[in-house]
Design a protein around this nucleic acid. Structure first.
Lengths: 190, 190
DNA sequence: GTCTATAAGGTGATAGAC
DNA sequence: GTCTATCACCTTATAGAC
């Protein structure tokens, strides 16, 4: 017995697809209703407001990313943890392409009601990577510096992942991960 | 004698600040006019439409980034070119914080009239970095792989730069560049 | 639970006086 | 060149029938 009705699920799916396409501000509740195959009144029966609707979508995405990164980190050690996190994050992006686009567009917004939610995405993602970096950087490295590095790895994976899906989607995920990880091998700086 | 009137400049400045704060869709022409200290009619006298207004803003930003990266690349060689590009891109982001936020939010949009403009930002940025990478990667590396790496470096710098400005703006730009570049030293993977 | 109809307010854009 | 006034439309949200 699903605790989420078919209608609610259809609305969420419609909102996700449209939001990825036109952004959240660019998506209207009318369009969402039409795409979900229900009337606008039904959308408002299931979600109190447009903000609540998208917040639910984003919250689910944040949880999903956090859990994925944490699991990847715990299943490997040393630099292997970074490798696993990059790989798993790329897989997640590929599986939830629309959600990834939606979140990428919102990630630096500071004026939304769900700001806390999306900000949590970056913070949790970056801090998971930061934790994995701790044993890999010199002992005297300040935490802020480590978080900047983590932000860089997070950003590289996100940008690389979206570029991959937009321009060369036929490339296997392993190759994309390998390309990003190659930059950390030290062979560029030789 | 400026070829751009004071009014036009005030409107562009207002649109930039508001756009960085609320996004482009979230910014109204009424607000832009108010902040610029002119009437809405004057905004429309200077810009044919809201789209044209923001397109002008974004176009200027793209040119600026492209020029900066090209200059940085040409003034150094080998890995030094990557170092210079990261450093100059961070400097540019710091100097044009609002523009950087505006562009970051639009960079993966595919449905806007200025899509071509913003898409050009990423493409030109990534391809400049890709050019600098050519002598640094194994000879048999496909171009697509090299561009994925370049996208990663671009994404790392953008994300690192925005995190820097949002959370630890007192950190000197050199330290931020050093943190990002450290990840390419190979010392993480040892 | 889902629908239709409508309210209430905002938005991009234009006309025409000055 | 800049202003005020206004249009036509769109958007979120709600009321009430079924």
């Amino acid at each position: 017995m699903p605790r989420i009705s078919a209608t609610k699920q259809a609305i969420l799916a419609a909102a996700l697809e449209l939001g990825a396409l036109h952004g959240i501000s660019g998506t209207t509740m009318e369009e969402v209703a039409e795409r979900a195959g229900v009337a606008k009144g039904s959308v408002y029966y299931n979600f109190a407001s447009k903000d609540k609707l998208f917040e639910e979508l984003l919250t689910a995405g944040v949880s999903s990313l956090s859990a994925t990164l944490r699991t990847a980190r715990e299943q490997a050690s040393g630099f292997g943890a970074i490798e696993a996190m990059v790989m798993q994050m790329l897989t997640l992006i590929a599986e939830n392409r629309a959600l990834a686009k939606l979140m990428a567009a919102e990630i630096f917004r500071t004026d939304r009601v769900w700001q806390h939610t999306v900000s949590g995405l970056r913070r949790e993602g970056v801090s998971e990577i930061g934790t994995a970096l701790a044993p890999l950087v010199p002992a005297e490295t300040p935490e802020a510096t480590r978080l900047l590095m983590a932000g860089g790895i997070f950003g590289a994976t996100l940008m690389g992942g979206l570029e991959w899906l937009l321009f060369t989607p036929e490339t296997p995920v392993e190759d994309v991960a390998a390309a990003i990880l190659f930059t950390y091998s030290g062979r560029l700086a030789q």
